[in-house]
Design a protein around this nucleic acid. Structure first.
Lengths: 229, 229
DNA sequence: CCGAATCCGCAGTGATACTG
DNA sequence: CAGTATCACTGCGGATTCGG
């Protein structure tokens, strides 16, 4: 399979050659959360053409960042998963996602939020320093999105679906049309959430996943000048 | 100016919309090193079509990550520079570059190394922990490439050209056809360099900028007379 | 249903030539 | 020096179809 090159012997250039094509890093973001089947990826990547998805999957496999697996007994079928080299991309994905979050502004009409995006946002926002020594677990519900996050002695685990063990605190969002992570933090601060668990853990949540010192648009309204076409 | 969207309210998706188009992050990499004029960018981005460069510059300016400046008195002309938001991309650029460096392998025929790439590699490889408390400065020569790096009380400054103050150690490469950062480390370990300064500082250099624990490809076979800029 | 392949129209890209 | 202009080409978006 032919590929386009940048002609530079440079780490960044090579990274962009391998995973920088359109939709590439978004596919990797979704696989960072957990292995997925073709249709899961298709559903989580709104608007991706099927031919682009299948050629990307082939290219990424050839690049050695993902691999095809046969799904285990109950369902069987194809599962796409990250290789170790693919998992090593997570710091880069988080770093880019963290920056992009500061540029998000208000949701544009038609933009959706996927569970994978929320998990990535949690991982990107996670502050190991603020979480040092902490052990706690949360479950987040917003509309049909359900994700979980657990901090065990300062180390983070986050994923889609309910927590493995019963979470210490369940955070439930009324306005499921604003399930973004930023809105989540805003809503949490404003108390626009329903809780099932001790309230102090909401403060822990905000401390650990809140904006560290990054310049966040406190009111995401006045930032849009650069974005209108 | 119209732009392509991913349709997701997600930090990573927004980042890719703003800086993820072809050549985008390479332009930003070069501007991370220092403000540059149009022709500097063109020379440092081998193979970029001039129309693509100019439309990228316009898009990135519109996105708020770069800005046009009028160069100061002596030369005058247009200078492109990162805005604060653009500078905030550096961690993401470093993270991607760090990953890509592990995937570099041997130089492909025709691939060149640019000064900006070396500076980015230094910044990406910099290990703050290993550099804690250190103060030292180096200058690196390889062919017509000349970059400098200084660690002041554990903080890194790196850039193109000779160091502002006289560097503590000058590292000079004989094989200027292999000026890549990885080869640099290999060559340094193998003693294939000429030094002007105390030898211990070469060990410091390797400790601070060496591969932390990443899997490095073994010594790249020397090849290819890459014509440099 | 899952996992694509195929076809088409068009926008983004690459290469080169040209201009203020 | 700092870009436009032009044109061929290919990758992408959108839709449909097809084989397990």
């Amino acid at each position: 399979m032919k590929r386009r090159y940048f002609g530079q012997y440079c780490g960044l250039a090579r990274a962009l050659e391998l995973v920088g094509e359109r939709w590439g890093l978004l596919i990797i973001r979704d696989l960072t959360v957990r292995p997925q089947r073709y249709t899961d990826l298709f559903d989580g990547l709104p608007g991706i053409p099927t031919n682009v998805l299948s050629t990307r999957l082939k290219e990424l496999e050839e690049a050695g960042v993902i691999e095809r697996r046969i799904a285990p007994a109950p369902q069987r079928g194809v599962l796409y998963a990250l290789t170790p080299a693919g998992h090593d991309l997570e710091p880069a994905v988080s770093a880019l996602g963290r920056w992009g979050t500061t540029q998000l502004g208000e949701p544009r009409p038609g933009e959706i939020v996927t569970p994978s995006a929320v998990v990535m946002a949690l991982r990107a926002a996670f502050d190991p320093h603020a979480a040092a020594g902490l052990t706690a677990s949360w479950e987040i519900h917003a509309g049909d999105i359900e994700v979980h996050a657990a901090v065990t002695e300062g180390r983070l685990t986050a994923g889609i679906g309910p927590a493995a063990d019963k979470p210490d605190l369940v955070i439930d969002f009324e306005p499921d049309d604003l399930p973004s992570y930023l809105a989540l933090m805003q809503a949490a601060k404003c108390g626009l959430v329903k809780l099932d668990g001790p309230r102090e853990l909401l403060d822990s949540f905000i401390r650990v996943f809140g904006p560290s010192k990054a310049t966040l648009p406190d009111a995401p309204a006045h930032r849009s000048a650069a974005l209108d076409e």
